[in-house]
Design a protein around this nucleic acid. Structure first.
Length: 478
DNA sequence: TTTTGAGTTGTTCGA
DNA sequence: GTCGAACAACTCAAA
């Protein structure tokens, strides 16, 4: 087969976009026929296979990418893993001379990449991989001593002082199709969508997966959100955050596109710098996971394994279902269940409640978020849970225990958020909304609230729970 | 090597 | 009601 007509395989992963996609760009520029594929391999990720909400998103994102590629004249072919078996086989079957892909951030994926690259080379096929998920390749940003940063602020300063990420690549306008035939799978047969019961109604109402939707979300944020970001980002009732996280996770939009769009369009100011720092946290988490592959399972500070964690299955379940009796916590957990997303401020409050008020291991919360978040990301999820628990990098001081009542009064003073997600409390006056158990009987009656019936009695007394947590954490030092 | 300053996101207590 | 201090000690990063 003449080399010009030998196809290249383009392996899509968490880079489900056409624009700023280095592997795709390289494939298009090669002038060869391109075979775009996606490999479904939940087994390869072990216990970190996509959770329920992520599977829903993935289904629709693959559909969307498939349509975009079809418009370029090439279908997206769906295959089943494991990739280290599928890719060498496919390359030989099609006579491909190279396989291109963008790297992921998960340790299991990187291990698999190494194996695949070796297998392909042994067959005389060229593997090429690119960084498309991060502003800075993992391992590229190190302190002056050459060691990975363990503290965010100096890490991010070093990022901003480094040569800026390259400007995003345009989407290719043409892609040479490959005419061969392949046995492929059917997306609907992968069972990514929930059926019995279909709990995805709220997800459908809240989200539009796909590259085009990601771009409109960014455009909207640039025109309306970013200047007010610093002030609004902490108010869960307001659409003050970008809501780009699931799009970023699935690679429907790249961090470089966001970084350069902010720098180009947004007025320099607190809003845009604050927002860029959030991209920085995403980078920092990925770097941490790269450096500590067991970040999702083991506390960065090993002594936290010894903490007097409680085995409270009832408490865990009440937390998951949004019936802890603390309105802000319950509102957050219900928003998560209904929409696959929770406001960042409320993530901190709910996480602090599980880990400190209930003394349930952070890994339990991490697992629940993994299953229910549409933006579930191994690095960010693990790093953030460890941060809240106090065992992570740059950890919160042990005495920082969120008070769910105070947080509610501070960040949801009019109760718009709580009333939306806990409608059974809607008629309570603002003063008692975040602490219904302290409301006079008369007030409760007028609002139609019967504690223990229409809304739960608090699972724990926060003051006591706080003291219990501080004592448990103090034990670690002893 | 030693030293110094600093560390996303908070709460409570007492004046 | 508001305000500042206290809440541990440690690790990290850089000088």
């Amino acid at each position: 087969m003449p080399p010009e007509s030998a196809p290249v395989i383009l392996w899509f992963r968490r880079d489900l976009r056409l624009a700023d996609n280095p592997a795709l760009n390289e494939a298009a520029a090669s002038g060869r026929p391109v075979i775009p594929i996606y490999i479904h391999q939940p087994e390869a990720a072990g216990e970190w296979a996509e959770g329920g909400a992520s599977r829903w998103w993935l289904h629709h994102s693959l559909e969307s990418l498939g349509r975009s590629l079809a418009a370029l004249g090439t279908p997206l072919r769906l295959l089943r893993g494991p990739a280290d078996r599928v890719l060498p086989q496919l390359a030989q079957e099609t006579g491909a001379t190279s396989v291109l892909w963008n790297r992921r951030t998960e340790p299991w994926a990187n291990q698999q990449d190494t194996i695949i690259a070796a297998e392909l080379k042994a067959l005389g096929i060229t593997p090429r991989s690119f960084n498309a998920a991060l502003l800075f390749q993992s391992g590229a940003i190190v302190s002056q001593s050459g060691r990975p940063f363990k503290v965010f602020t100096p890490f991010w300063k070093a990022c901003l002082a480094a040569p800026p990420p390259a400007p995003p690549l345009p989407a290719p306008t043409t892609l040479r199709p490959w005419g061969g035939a392949l046995a492929v799978e059917d997306l609907d047969q992968w069972g990514l969508l929930p059926t019995k019961p279909d709990w995805a109604c709220g997800l459908r109402q809240s989200w539009q997966p796909g590259e085009a939707a990601a771009q409109s979300r960014l455009a909207e944020f640039l025109s309306e959100g970013v200047t007010q970001y610093a002030g609004n980002r902490d108010v869960p009732a307001q659409p003050g955050t970008s809501r780009l996280s699931p799009h970023l996770h699935f690679g429907e939009i790249s961090p470089r596109q966001i970084f350069h769009a902010i720098r180009r369009t947004a007025e320099p100011g607190q809003g845009s710098e604050r927002f860029l720092a959030e991209l920085g946290w995403r980078e920092f988490s990925a770097h941490l996971l790269h450096d500590c592959p067991d970040l999702p399972e083991r506390p960065l500070r090993p002594e936290f394994e010894r903490l007097a964690w409680r085995h409270d299955t009832d408490g865990l379940r009440a937390w998951q279902q949004g019936r802890t009796g603390y309105p802000l916590v319950d509102a957050g957990m219900r928003q998560l269940w209904a929409t696959g997303w929770m406001h960042n401020r409320v993530r901190m409050v709910t996480a602090s409640f599980l880990v400190k008020d209930l003394l349930v291991r952070w890994q339990e919360g991490e697992a629940w978020f993994w299953d229910t978040l549409v933006d579930a990301d191994l690095a960010s999820n693990a790093a953030s849970w460890q941060w809240v628990a106090g065992c992570g990098a740059d950890a919160a001081p042990f005495f920082r225990v969120f008070n769910p009542v105070l947080q509610g009064e501070k960040f949801d003073p009019k109760g718009r958020y709580v009333r939306q997600w806990c409608p059974e409390l809607a008629n309570l006056p603002d003063k008692w909304l975040h602490q219904p158990w302290r409301a006079p009987a008369q007030v409760l009656r007028q609002a139609g609230v019967v504690l223990g019936e229409t809304y739960p009695v608090p699972l724990v007394d926060h003051d006591q729970a706080r003291k219990r947590a501080l004592a448990a954490f103090a034990e670690l030092k002893a």
